[in-house]
């Protein structure tokens, strides 16, 4: 494939601007390939983040022509409009420099939502038998493959309007643990996600589901948390 792409990349911090580059078109070229080409051939000071390049690690998410995407698995031919590409850092997060967003608020909210496994047994106990067909395991499986890329967080209107909102990824993670029968911290977890700016702040716009690169449905997970927390509250198990 011959020709040139007109590429605009965000340069600088929050007060930066888009800078134009001309990048040669290639067959099967990804947006990450384009960004890498600019850094290797046009400006070595360009900052961006990536690791695996195969859609496993969740490091390379950026805003591509207005939509948050995983750049390593996004083909230029599918997203470039008239040979033009505009790439910026993820939205709803502070900009460190150029295309690298500061992911700290995103991961701090995972901690706030108690998104870590709390073991209920020790290594001397026998391994718990969990039927793959049990409803709880099926619910956890449906949400478990999150790669922590931050695309849903950048796409979420509620995060944009309410910066305290825990966001789709952290709540989706909490939902997998709520459905893990081995976990011992569900009272704390349900209390955390039932507080102000927790799961009940979600408006079910479903942008997270629409944009999730691994086709998860965080809106469904959040709906599950709404039900679970409401039941727990009515039974007196948690207090808001």
């Amino acid at each position: 494939m011959a020709g040139t792409l007109e590429v605009s990349l965000w340069r600088g911090g929050a007060d930066g601007r888009y800078v134009g580059y001309e990048v040669p078109m290639r067959d099967s070229q990804t947006v990450l390939d384009v960004v890498t080409w600019v850094q290797r051939n046009a400006d070595a000071t360009l900052s961006y983040r990536f690791a695996c390049r195969v859609g496993m690690c969740g490091s390379c998410a950026m805003t591509v022509n207005g939509r948050p995407r995983w750049t390593c698995r996004t083909h230029v031919s599918k997203v470039a409009s008239d040979g033009k590409l505009k790439v910026g850092p993820l939205e709803n997060l502070p900009v460190i420099k150029d295309l690298a967003a500061d992911m700290r608020p995103f991961f701090e909210k995972w901690q706030q939502a108690q998104g870590r496994f709390a073991p209920s047994k020790t290594r001397t106990d026998p391994i718990e038998r969990i039927s793959p067909d049990s409803p709880a395991r099926l619910a956890a499986n449906a949400a478990i493959e999150c790669i922590n890329c931050g695309v849903c967080y950048a796409a979420c209107d509620t995060v944009r309007w309410n910066p305290d909102y825990l966001g789709p990824a952290a709540l989706n993670r909490a939902w997998t643990l709520v459905n893990d029968v081995r976990d011992a911290a569900n009272v704390e977890r349900l209390t955390a996600v039932a507080a102000d700016s927790g799961c009940h702040a979600c408006h079910s716009h479903q942008s997270c589901q629409e944009h999730c690169p691994v086709a998860l449905n965080p809106t469904a997970s959040i709906a599950g948390l709404k039900r679970k927390t409401a039941q727990a509250y009515l039974r007196g198990e948690i207090k808001p």
């Binding site: 039932a194 102000d196 927790g198 009940h200 702040a201 409401a230 509250y233 808001p240």
Partner: peptide, 8 residues
Amino acid sequence: MNVRLYIW
């Protein structure tokens, strides 16, 4: 919105 307000 917390769970109490949600239920109300």
